[in-house]
Amino acid sequence: MTDHTPDTPLVQEPRRWQNEQWTAQVIKNDDDDGWAVAMYKDGASEPALVGPWTMGRDKKNPKPLDGSAFITLVKTASEFVRRSEQQLHATLHQSVTVNGLSGRVTVCLDIVPDEDSPYATLSAQDELGEALAEVKVDAGFKLSRQSAQAWVDAEFARPGSGRR
């Protein structure tokens, strides 16, 4: 019985390498006569990353995958996924700090990207982290220093409604 660690390849073929977290698949590049490598995470149906792949010596077939190439591809794809997740988080969770009547107020916008009815929650906290207000807003609400300051100045009335 083989002891598989996350870095131990489960499949080692010229055009396909796999460990318990990633699969590298060399594919024909649809855009030209070359080759590409697609990196799939955890058996996902869509690749997390697709990049160019080197031609072999015959200038017709792809260079075979090997251990060092696979390790590099896993590191690259993992970093790409991590950055994409960070970017998505930053898009869905925003905050700015503005001046309120009794001190600094942090205004947060948390977007819920529901496929059927996306929405967002606009909330405010004082300097001690105490909740001051929370309202449901359109998912397209744009949080900026100006919009946050206007909400605080309007004593947390629902933006665009003139009411709380």
Rank of each mutant, 00 (worst) to 15 (best):
88 L>H: 04
130 E>V: 07
163 R>C: 02
105 V>N: 04
44 A>D: 12
56 G>D: 09
117 S>F: 13
19 N>Q: 05
145 R>P: 01
34 G>Q: 03
42 D>Q: 14
7 D>Y: 01
64 P>V: 08
26 V>A: 12
116 D>P: 01
92 L>I: 11
29 N>G: 00
59 K>S: 13
119 Y>N: 14
94 Q>M: 14
24 A>V: 12
86 Q>V: 07
9 P>G: 02
95 S>L: 03
162 G>Y: 00
78 S>L: 02
110 D>N: 15
78 S>G: 10
134 E>C: 10
101 L>P: 07
116 D>K: 00
4 H>G: 00
76 T>Q: 11
92 L>S: 08
69 A>L: 14
164 R>S: 09
8 T>W: 00
103 G>L: 12
28 K>Q: 08
86 Q>L: 14
66 D>H: 15
55 M>K: 07
20 E>D: 14
115 E>Y: 13
115 E>I: 05
89 H>E: 15
118 P>F: 03
12 Q>T: 15
12 Q>D: 12
90 A>C: 09
4 H>Q: 08
28 K>R: 14
123 S>I: 05
39 M>I: 10
150 A>Q: 10
106 T>S: 01
37 V>L: 02
123 S>W: 04
73 L>E: 08
80 F>W: 05
70 F>Q: 06
56 G>I: 03
135 V>D: 13
40 Y>C: 03
150 A>G: 01
84 S>P: 00
